[in-house]
């Protein structure tokens, strides 16, 4: 398997990268970690004429706390997410998810931004970002703008990102102290995309659920934010009836493809099971 030919660019600043993309037009692709794009190029499902490698742009890396948010640079790798003590302290679900992505080698090179932005419904981070209510900072020829994660995904490999725009950072509101979270992923083996996966973040007070958010991975053309399902939990003690209702509501919004991971009905049911198990684990971790 051999990729087609292309010209290679390694800009040093975001402005240069944006400028290059503008100049090179539709036949240019952005290269981050490469673990989604290069396989597509090797099978010739993708044949960009120009590759703009973002790895030389130092500004795109790093994890920082800014007020009530955590800001993660797009070129921060999965490995760096897992290693970040700051992230572990404030939003542990991110590293928990990273550890379930691909394999060790790929996590060294695979970037947070690539996982978030390339629109592959199999990617894990998008559902987590929707669950957390993150927003994406993008730079383009017309300047910078922010897009809510929950508005970003429009179809398989189809997002709100316009051609020529680059995701630069992700801003994530830090969930309330004492929140409980979990990412449950069913997969056939290490390195696989999810058969179905669920991200859950909840807060509890006096045994009552005071907030809940649920994201679903790889059970539709896009990641899903199961807001109706989550709403059914708020005010409950996460008793069986409430959880059953939320699971049913989550299953209802799925629309998975049948593939080698299983037929659609199985993947829908697994989305429900993952929600149920993520809720159990999040509840056990929540304080209050």
């Amino acid at each position: 398997m051999i990729p087609g030919t292309f010209d290679y660019y390694r800009p040093q600043t975001v402005d240069d990268a944006v400028g290059l993309l503008s100049k090179l037009g539709e036949e240019a692709s952005v290269l981050a970690g490469g673990h989604s794009l290069i396989p597509l190029m090797k099978t010739r499902f993708a044949s960009p004429h120009h590759l703009v490698d973002l790895s030389g742009i130092g500004d795109l890396k790093g994890i920082s706390v800014e007020g009530d948010d955590i800001v993660i640079g797009a070129m921060t790798t999965q490995f760096e997410l897992i290693a970040s003590e700051e992230l572990e302290r404030h939003i542990p679900i991110i590293a928990e998810t990273s550890r379930l992505i691909a394999d060790p080698q790929i996590r060294y090179k695979g970037t947070f931004g690539g996982n978030v932005a390339n629109g592959d419904p199999g990617n894990d981070m998008p559902a987590v970002m929707m669950c957390l209510g993150a927003s994406y900072s993008v730079s383009g020829p017309d300047g910078n703008r922010d897009i809510a994660a929950r508005d970003f995904y429009q179809g398989a490999y189809f997002t709100a990102l316009e051609h020529g725009e680059i995701l630069t950072a992700v801003r994530i509101p830090i969930p309330a102290p004492g929140h409980g979270s979990a990412y449950e992923k069913l997969k056939r083996k290490v390195g696989d995309y999810a058969t179905a996966a669920a991200a859950v973040v909840i807060t509890m007070a006096g045994g009552t659920c005071t907030s809940a958010s649920i994201g679903l991975t790889n059970v539709s053309e896009t990641p899903l934010w199961a807001s109706d399902a989550a709403a059914l939990l708020v005010g409950s003690s996460l008793d069986k009836a409430s959880v059953d209702a939320a699971v049913a509501a989550a299953e209802a919004i799925t629309n998975p493809a049948s593939d080698m991971r299983g037929p659609a009905e199985y993947r829908t049911k697994m989305a429900g099971i993952m929600v149920r198990r993520a809720l159990e684990r999040a509840k056990s971790r929540a304080k209050g």
């Binding site: 290679y8 490469g34 673990h35 290069i38 396989p39 490995f79 060790p104 080698q105 790929i106 060294y108 090179k109």
Partner: peptide
């Protein structure tokens, strides 16, 4: 200092 898959790297 990273393990890298050299068939997924240019």
């Amino acid at each position: 200092d990273m393990s890298v898959k050299s068939c997924m790297t240019f």
